[in-house]
Design a binder for these strands. Sequence first.
RNA 1: GGGAGAUUAGCUCAGUUGGUUUAGAGCACCUGCCUUACAAGCAGGGGGUCACUGGUUCGAGUCCAGUAUUUCCCA
Length: 877
Amino acid sequence: MKLSTEYSPVEVEDKWYAHWEAKGYFHSEPDEREAFSVVIPPPNVTGMLHMGHMLNNTIQDILIRKAKLDGKNACWVPGTDHASIATEAKVVRMLREQGIKKSDLTREGFLEHAWEWKEKYGGIILQQLRKLGASCDWDRTAFTMDEERSKAVMQVFVDLYNKGKLYRGLRMVNWDPEAKTVLSNEEVLYKDEQSHIYHVRYQIEGSEDFVTIATTRPETILGDSAIAVHPDDSRYTFLHGKRAIVPLVNRSIPIIFDEYVEREFGTGALKVTPAHDVNDYEIGKRHELEVIEVLNDDGTINENGGLAHYVGKSRFKVRTEIVKELESSGNLVEIKPYAHNVGRSERTNAVVEPKLSLQWYVDMKSLAEPALEAVMTDEVEFFPKNQKNVYKHWMENIRDWCISRQLWWGHQIPAWYYEDEVFVATTAEEALYQARAKTGNHELEISDLRQDEDVLDTWFSSWLWPMSVFDEFSTKEEIDYYYPTSVLVTGWDIIFLWVARMIMAGYEWKHERPFKHVYFTGMVRDQKRRKMSKQLGNSPDALELISQFGADGVRYGMLSSSPAGGDLLFDEKLVDQGKKFCNKLWNALRMFKNLEIDDSLETPIENKLAIEWFEQKKSAILNDLASNFDQYRLSEALVSLYSFVWTDFCSWYLEMVKPDYEKPIDSYTYEKSMDLFEDLCLMLHPFMPFITEEIWHKLKDRKEGEDCMNGSWPKATSYDKEIIAKVEKAKDVISRVREIRNKNGIKKNEPLSVLVEESKGAQDLLAVNGVKEILIKLAVLSGIEWVSGEPEKSVGFLSGTEKYYVEIEQEIDVEAEKEKLEKDLAHAEGFVNSVEKKLSNERFVNNAPEAVVAMEHKKLADGKERVRIIKASLEKL
RNA sequence: GGGAGAUUAGCUCAGUUGGUUUAGAGCACCUGCCUUACAAGCAGGGGGUCACUGGUUCGAGUCCAGUAUUUCCCA
């Protein structure tokens, strides 16, 4: 078998993905095995693969592939959500480029364009996930607006309404004037922005006195309906019972007294605009103030403000103009720079406008209760745990969920109005039936009813995802088998938007948790810890990365530095390390494949020890992996595999069993090595599926369907710690000899003679079959002999409590040697002192567990032995 | 303003119930090697009073309190 010295992922990855898919390995049907199900956090249908997706989906793929190897029936359901705001914005933009205005279209006409767009571009991201190796069950691909999912949304809406957990209410909402829709609190991002605070004076009615207020939004004075001051503020007691005149508008408004006002802030006097500020709205309710809406839905000023020359102009333009006008009228006292928190729409970045509006709300209190309980008792278990606090705080302060969105793309709210009545039903026919019954008017037709124009928040469909994706096949068997799902993998940034609501929905309709575990990933950030985003342009192109480093390399890079919940500072070096790791594996394969196998050869004794050692070590690693997987310490699992492959397998095992140059290998060693390599492939497969599949097929002749992806996870057995410890000791001796070569400029292949001082430790070590041979082979020795006392012309070293000497020709640098020994001595004595101190403490000896005390005695004995040996060496010098 | 976390090597992070030879990894750094699996490599090395101050304990990187710095969440 001729193999290139470099592994090239490109051909390999596409080949194996097509093979797995053709074999149907990704598809799952219920059967007698234990189910392991995962629903993908549905990316936006407008989405393109970015770093966050890669991290998130790599983790899911690892869990799914591991579950498959463990013999479970793994099912990973892919899909997308319809992303109301983002998609509608995209479609509107596309139409505008074609010269079509949304307002020129009917709702049906617009939706036709939107679906067309969806069919054409939606789901690109699902194609991209294949490049990453994602083993999704593509037959189950779901969409939040497809028939099954939509049906679920309608049913749930009606059910909540009938239970009285859904209502329509006039509330202050977050209004996005650009998208012209309401936003939930979670969709508004607050940031400190530099702006100005304006001090404006209002004349007191019937006097020449003024009261000065401070505001950041002078344009809203058009909607002012009061001035408020603190009742205990002595500066303003004279204002009792007075009224003020709104500048420019010349409207007379009351001066009210309310404890909400902060005396220290600004001038201590506050203008009150109930229609355009949440707090002012509350004050307005207390004092029964007039509510004057001066803004249109698109953020322009309307005629209610009473100043015709501002009508139709944007709020920002009016702010500039009104400041000028206030200045010329003598009402502007001063302008100060001011930093304050400004809320912007997550989608359009428009400054969010508080607006009074009639919307549908979900009453969250009763939904939250079981969902909070479930997480607090770990029935739904969070990884990492600290997210429980965040969740608890939100759930205990939960507010009702505004679910109407003033858009067309989405699930139109199943509520029909007739006169003052509202009829909520899954279909228009059903609503009509209700309307006829209620009104007694049997002549009513559907056309007499008016359906709510709004659509539902996208999350109102995604919160049903773990249930709705399994309804597709509409037999109960599906959902009974796969629900609750095993684990949800998602970023902590959508814990409220999505995770919390799914838990609520699970308990509300299935009376059961939607998933057993939630794994919160961190955010992918750049080297400066900035979140990766399109705006910053600091995110590498995901597909470009894959083609440059291979999917396995990228997966390695994404994961190797990403503990659960911890942020991942992305660095191309990490994926490059992954690529190098692939190359390392590849070359280990090449080493074996270049060898000639000789059946007649005896197996060298050092090979038997190497094989034995590696098998034991493998069991140890498998045990570590098991606990790492249990606790979702995936990056740690990968790190341990990395060092097991690179250090233990390549640097040590291979060097131990490798025959001399151009010599053949014995067949036992070869077969055993293939078995071990095969296990390595299985262990690495969840993390790096492509290269492991490729190597798997090159290791042995495989039967049809005998694939790595389809294999069984190697069994962890109890293992012999003793043999591992002995080989570790041997490795230490080898390293020490190499160090002496390095320091003395002795060539690597020049055989050296090593002498060992007789001791129990050394005897035990060399008594192990194969140890002596391994030392000779890897340290390149001419021989190992026993000695007592320091030999001439030699350099000594200490390994554990054993003293070794390397005979060398070179002149020995006595001073340097002395210096080093003195340093070692200081260290060893310091160690002995600390242990002695511990052991001389009676309370320690009496209170500490026996095993701990025994260990301290052993430490002391070993330490003293080392001190003795170093002192002896120093004396000789 | 309220809350949660973080602080361990130059950088990024592990360190699991307090005890396992006076702290580990990767990267970076230094030295020597183009040795027939791999220079995308090999061998070896240096580098840390575990933020600070106190406390609990026989014993603290690990538990508690305070301080400093810092990140995030909520308002």
